[in-house]
């Protein structure tokens, strides 16, 4: 355990990148998820089709492939770059992949939330003369969001753990699991305590998330 603790600054550095990946991807995937949900329940058939195709295609593709596509496809073959420095370029490519992937799950969670709203409410809103956007913003999304806080917490936890793929899939983003593998490769640390140490690190990140989202979902539940 001493060898693991001696490398503690490396561990902290790794987790700081895990948090950066998670936080920014969470924001983007939430935004994209809302857009996708709005498209899927919109009155325009083409929008519904596009959103469904996107969600089904990306949701059913392994994350490793999505990120490999970002690294070797978008970046290497097509020359897409987000930043001058390699470190930030691969970071943003990873955020792109993680957001594109996670948005599908956000969208599916939100859509199930939308389905909990009695249809009469939406009809009533329409009969009052609210447009689709007003209907979404004032009636549907506030209630849908409140009913899916719990599931969204699970999505966030999954995203946190999914960031570990970003270091392996053609990108080499710094994050916690990469630091762990580096420590093994250098042979400086015993395997079992290191595994347990990093697992505890993820617990420390994810347990409060689950707790906060659980509490929130109870507090914010829509009373019907």
């Amino acid at each position: 355990m001493e060898a693991f603790l001696a490398n503690f600054n490396v561990v902290i550095d790794g987790f700081s990148w895990t948090i950066r990946l998670t936080a920014i991807s969470a924001v983007f995937s939430f935004a994209l998820g809302i857009v996708l949900t709005a498209m899927r329940v919109s009155p325009v058939p083409l929008l519904r089709l596009m959103a469904s195709v996107y969600v089904e295609a990306v949701r059913n593709t392994p994350l490793t492939l999505v990120l490999l596509f970002c690294g070797l496809g978008l970046n290497s073959a097509l020359g897409l770059s987000f930043a001058e420095s390699v470190e930030w370029n691969v970071y943003w490519l990873a955020v792109l992949g993680l957001s594109a992937y996670t948005a599908c799950f956000v969208s599916e969670a939100l859509r199930s939330g939308v389905n909990t709203i009695p249809f009469g409410q939406i009809e009533a809103a329409r009969s009052l003369g609210l447009t689709f956007m007003q209907n979404m913003r004032l009636i549907v999304l506030p209630q849908a969001l409140r009913s899916v806080i719990g599931p969204l917490g699970s999505v966030l936890i999954a995203l946190t753990k999914n960031t570990t793929v970003a270091s392996v899939a053609g990108l080499g983003v710094q994050e916690a699991s990469r630091e762990m593998k580096l420590m093994f490769d250098q042979g400086v640390v015993p395997v079992l305590p290191t595994f347990i140490g990093f697992a505890i690190g993820f617990l420390v990140l994810c347990l409060p998330m689950g707790w906060i989202f659980g509490t929130l979902s109870k507090r914010m539940a829509v009373a019907r």
């Binding site: 690294g71 070797l72 420095s85 270091s167 392996v168 053609g170 990108l171 990469r178």
Partner: peptide, 17 residues
């Protein structure tokens, strides 16, 4: 500047491109 990949095949792909 360092770009890290999982293996050298990926490096070769990046070098080709």
């Amino acid at each position: 500047e360092l770009r890290e990949t999982q293996n050298y095949s990926e490096c070769l792909q990046l070098l080709t491109d």
